[in-house]
Design a protein around this nucleic acid. Sequence first.
DNA 1: CCTAAACTGCGAACGTCGTTTGCAGTTTAC
DNA 2: GTAAACTGCAAACGACGTTCGCAGTTTAGG
Lengths: 210, 210
Amino acid sequence: MTAAIALADAEGLPAVSMRAVASALDTTAGSLYRYLSSRDDLLDLMTDHAVGELKPYPRPAGDWLDQLQALATQQLELHRRHRWLGEVIQRPTAAGPQTLSWFDHCLGILREVPAPTTAKFEAIALMTGTVVLFSRAQPTGQPFAALDPARHPHLTAALANPGPPPKDDLFARALRALLTGLLLGERGQEAVAEGVHAPDRAVGHRGQAG
Amino acid sequence: MTAAIALADAEGLPAVSMRAVASALDTTAGSLYRYLSSRDDLLDLMTDHAVGELKPYPRPAGDWLDQLQALATQQLELHRRHRWLGEVIQRPTAAGPQTLSWFDHCLGILREVPAPTTAKFEAIALMTGTVVLFSRAQPTGQPFAALDPARHPHLTAALANPGPPPKDDLFARALRALLTGLLLGERGQEAVAEGVHAPDRAVGHRGQAG
DNA sequence: CCTAAACTGCGAACGTCGTTTGCAGTTTAC
DNA sequence: GTAAACTGCAAACGACGTTCGCAGTTTAGG
């Protein structure tokens, strides 16, 4: 269980074979089926255990956008710590209790945001998707073998003049752009530009937490 | 090759085994290694072949944002047609010629956008990532088994009151929010809100194409 | 305290996977 | 006409997820 997580952290998800985790537990592959129904079961348990690391949730500070950003930042750290998470959560399996709790916490933050429920669901899904995207991108080696400048003029030009390194707040900017665009619609753009962070109604995090 | 794509379209990526495509070609698994060096090779070929379906690229219309949106919409249709694409392109392999050509085309559209090269790379990657995210989300069954209203108050409330269905322009809105946020920075938000689509310099697609 | 039932862990095996290998049959070159 | 090179393929290898049946141990009942 935690042995499987350690294995995945160290050697990647493909290294998490029934035989490997059994060996780490000084037993054999078949024996694991006394406790697990399948390998997918193991992956589900690993996922929910990892999501549990997000607790305690950050104390509410700022408006809902700030709070979601804090949550996403924490989530990004989690995905960098467990690089196999992005791959695992893309399977269509039932969500575990920790995942359910986290999702409920997100909805709590969005409670007063005037957007339909479906939009909030999509926004949270896309937030996690963005986290996964950013957790992957770090070492850009040279994925381009032989470039023909005639065939790919813009690409060669871009590579010849790489320009300044990317700003490190790229994640926060992308996230805020996505969330405001999704949840506030076109009017959200103006609101952000004007420095207005919340709609008319008060958007606080009243009392409860997960 | 095309047989493998047909197989993946029909029965999913796991069904694309060496033996299965060999059987479709009336031969055996080992024989394929006369033409392919590995299964990853086959997947790479399938990917590049599928990306080739994006040609001819849509004729340039509107500013760079409109053009990228058209490209992304076309890409989304491709990913819905070949649902295995999203999974395949996440492997860290070298890009094929069609993929290179497409990437170069994107950079051509962004040619006059005043953003560093690295930012453009990230934006294109995130655009594709958004396409993958949206290509997945279609049937939301009931992923929630037994909900404890006390433990997940917001979630149960949200499910009890689903609200109106999501607007179908959600993809376009998310994409535009992401791209403007990434490539224009904070100032981009104002520009979009004011209906201004391009910076001072003319942003046309002059002549060439991929 | 002894026996019967239930449960535990585990070695061995099954089928499938990607990949390698050696062998026939055929084509090419001298 | 012979030697070299190339082709397709059946068989096999190791690793995978998973199943099965058998020992050893724990529990329940008389």
